[in-house]
Amino acid sequence: MELLSPREVASFALSLLDLTNLRDDCDAAAIEKLCERAQTPAGSTAAICIWPRFVAQARGILGADSKVKIATVVNFPSGELPVETVVAETSQAIADGADEIDLVIPYRAFLAGDEDAVTTMVSAVRAACGPTTLKVILETGELKDSGKIRRASELAIAAGADFIKTSTGKVQVNATLEAADIMLQVIRDSRKNVGFKPAGGISSVADADLYLRLAETIMGANWLMPSTFRFGASGLLDDILSVLNGGASARVSSAY
């Protein structure tokens, strides 16, 4: 990756950001504020990522032709809901105006040796999504083992994921460069047009730059764009705007 200035990295990261509010205390006022924050003087974020119950409200605020996509989460965060419940959740979210579905795999079942649980869930939600973008959350901080992260990535891609995503942001370990490296290699080796989304704990432009450089090293210079790379973060926008306004990026966090 050519050496970009912090401002250039910040501007690029803004265009790749899924600005997220999945707090347990999120309410209608917070969604209104999130939609406003996603449309900055420096440009818009790629998407907002919110609970399903707020999708219709966000669509009403942003309008049908907004550049800001609406992403929502299903089977979240536990990964343990029945397939039919998750399919219904997905269909309702799309009817309410969601552009993108972020699905948690049944990672505990997978850890217990049930690969079919992953394939069945992802395939069913893929079918329910139709042309809607499907991002599949592996919860890599719980999978831990590199072989399991690799296998979960392979299963998700084979079952129709448009993106594979590291984390819910709801467990102790979320996005890490180590998990990102494995997942990006699987995407490359699949030769499919699949994107990557690190999520959880990425809070500074300095953090974001590390992930961008890793992705470019593995996938090539022209791969990084909103259709193939997103950051899932709630705090990253503050640092992006600080850097764009001439400040220094916060220190790289100890936990990605």
Score class of each variant (00 low, 15 high):
102 D>R: 10
113 G>E: 00
102 D>S: 13
104 V>K: 00
128 A>D: 11
105 I>K: 09
156 A>E: 01
130 G>V: 05
133 T>R: 11
131 P>I: 03
126 R>F: 02
140 T>G: 05
125 V>N: 00
126 R>N: 11
115 E>I: 03
140 T>Q: 05
144 K>S: 14
124 A>T: 11
135 K>N: 10
112 A>S: 15
151 R>W: 12
124 A>Y: 11
113 G>I: 03
108 R>S: 08
142 E>R: 14
104 V>I: 13
107 Y>V: 02
134 L>K: 04
104 V>C: 11
102 D>L: 09
133 T>Q: 03
153 S>P: 14
141 G>M: 08
110 F>T: 11
137 I>M: 10
127 A>L: 12
145 D>H: 15
140 T>P: 09
107 Y>P: 08
139 E>D: 07
138 L>E: 05
125 V>E: 06
117 A>T: 04
152 A>K: 12
134 L>I: 01
101 I>V: 12
157 I>R: 04
124 A>N: 02
124 A>C: 06
148 K>E: 06
139 E>M: 04
116 D>M: 09
117 A>F: 13
131 P>Q: 12
132 T>F: 05
106 P>A: 07
117 A>S: 15
136 V>K: 13
140 T>R: 10
107 Y>C: 01
124 A>E: 08
117 A>E: 10
135 K>C: 07
148 K>C: 02
114 D>L: 03
112 A>N: 14
127 A>N: 12
149 I>H: 00
116 D>Q: 15
136 V>R: 07
139 E>K: 13
148 K>T: 07
107 Y>I: 00
138 L>M: 03
104 V>W: 01
113 G>H: 00
126 R>C: 05
131 P>K: 14
101 I>Y: 06
140 T>E: 08
123 S>R: 14
125 V>C: 00
151 R>H: 15
126 R>S: 05
125 V>I: 04
113 G>V: 04
103 L>P: 11
105 I>A: 06
154 E>N: 11
143 L>N: 10
132 T>W: 04
111 L>Q: 03
118 V>S: 01
123 S>N: 12
116 D>H: 13
150 R>V: 09
152 A>V: 02
102 D>P: 14
134 L>N: 09
153 S>N: 07
148 K>H: 14
111 L>D: 02
124 A>L: 04
122 V>F: 00
110 F>N: 09
119 T>G: 03
124 A>Q: 04
129 C>D: 05
117 A>M: 03
142 E>W: 01
145 D>K: 14
131 P>Y: 08
113 G>W: 04
